[in-house]
Write a protein that binds this DNA or RNA. Structure first.
Lengths: 249, 249
DNA sequence: CTCATTCCTAAACGGCGGGTCAGAAATCGC
DNA sequence: GCGATTTCTGACCCGCCGTTTAGGAATGAG
């Protein structure tokens, strides 16, 4: 053996590639820029990757594996929790009951783990959202979101079975709400420079979805109908509006 | 004057361009394919547009104008409604009160108009979401969403002032929820082949956001705290999960 | 020092596709 | 029919960039 390879080259190349992908998207990221950014020559790129897309595929698959591990343990832990204690009884629904506290702690912990992971992969996520037109990754992020939304539907069903949430709201509708909030929140996080305060963020998300989701306490029939919270049509004022355009060059 | 221009050429070209943009994104849409699809030669493209991007800019600006007109009238109408009748009184909150019915009708009408418009521009929206990496339109859709979310914040504030929705939920949090639902819903619609049933869709969206948003009826203090719906941490099970990849070629 | 071996460079290749333009085709007035 | 005029064509040009490769540089063994 002669001339050992630069041990930092691969790491540096990947870091440079991530930066370029993040800045320009997959197609517009130029190999020459990537290699130049880490002091290598253009040709050196192919010592470490088969192609531009292959390199990005590596990144995405690595991210995917970590994310998958995270969700597997989450679901397992959640199911173990309910298997252990069975469905919630009325007293468990109190915010200070031991089971509710345990459940909350568990969920918050998993939420934060997910946020942390997404934060470390924020550049890749950003590319998946914004910069993969015409590549093999086109639409992949939305497929993932759809799939995850399906999981939320199932999670809601489990929660209903366990009496943790009320039964009269459609799972689809709940899942759309949850995922919508996550998507917007992730999109924003992924575009940020500084790491947000995850505990505060989770608290906000939970505030957002927590209202109106718990099982309704049994109400005595004498309560007049008009005293239940009123539903108002409000979904509408909120469709994307003006698009600001820079005049094309 | 001699040899009059083909009167259908421009229309056909634009239609073909939209199809190609939709199918391949802006960058990957080839001018030759666009012209071939409407029986013109490559050079003819430049008789009708300065460049590929310029053509798309035209489309987006046209969409933008229509959308803007729609929102302007909506806000005006909404403000006129409250200017006319003043803030809601308790009796107005009844789902059968005249003012509530009028408000609902108004909102649903505007919602449907927005959906219709987006449906006719679904190809362009699809491109804005998926296919504009590295073009002047990169990120434009998210800017629009952010801007619209800001409008929702203001709309919530107005609604609070008018006593139509309860005051103890943060506007930011409400707006994130509304916009999240709209974004996911639009994304899905834009990818569909057949036009969805807008009335049903609006009903679903409203069901989704309507719960828990109306002002709480004054509750006599004797009601035990535990009878209010419980908040549960549930935001978490719902982060995007596995990404499915086709192996890159 | 010399050679074999592996690493790395930079120039060259090649395909793709946006944009151009000389000229062909169509149409009109006469 | 004929020239004038405008429309349209498609072959060509050209820059860009991913990928290849011939050869030079570094290093270790003997």
């Amino acid at each position: 053996m002669a001339r050992p390879a630069d041990p930092h080259a691969r790491t540096a190349l990947i870091a440079a590639a991530r930066a370029q992908f993040r800045a320009h998207g997959i197609q517009k990221a130029r190999i020459e820029d990537i290699t130049a950014a880490c002091g290598l020559s253009k040709g050196a790129f192919y010592l470490h990757a088969e192609s531009k897309e292959a390199l990005f595929t590596e990144l995405v698959m690595q991210f995917e594996r970590q994310l998958d591990a995270l969700f597997t343990t989450r679901i397992a832990e959640e199911e173990a929790f309910f298997a252990r204690g069975g469905p919630f009884r009325p007293k468990d629904l109190s915010p200070t009951s031991e089971r509710m506290l345990t459940l909350n702690e568990m969920q918050v912990r998993h939420d934060i783990a997910a946020l942390e992971l997404m934060w470390t992969w924020r550049d890749v996520i950003h590319v998946l959202i914004n910069g993969c037109q015409g590549t093999a990754f086109d639409g992949v992020i939305w497929q993932a979101i759809d799939r995850e939304q399906q999981r939320v539907v199932e999670a809601c069903e489990r929660m209903k079975k366990a009496n943790v949430i009320r039964r009269d709201l459609s799972n689809d509708v709940l899942a759309t709400m949850f995922m919508g909030v996550w998507v917007l929140t992730m999109r924003k996080m992924v575009a940020q420079e500084e790491k947000p305060d995850f505990h505060a963020l989770i608290a906000e998300l939970n505030l957002l979805v927590g209202e109106g989701i718990a099982p309704r306490p049994a109400v005595s029939p004498k309560v007049p109908k008009s005293s239940t919270p009123r539903r108002v049509s409000v979904a509408h004022r909120r469709a994307p509006n003006r698009l600001s355009l820079r005049k094309s060059p």
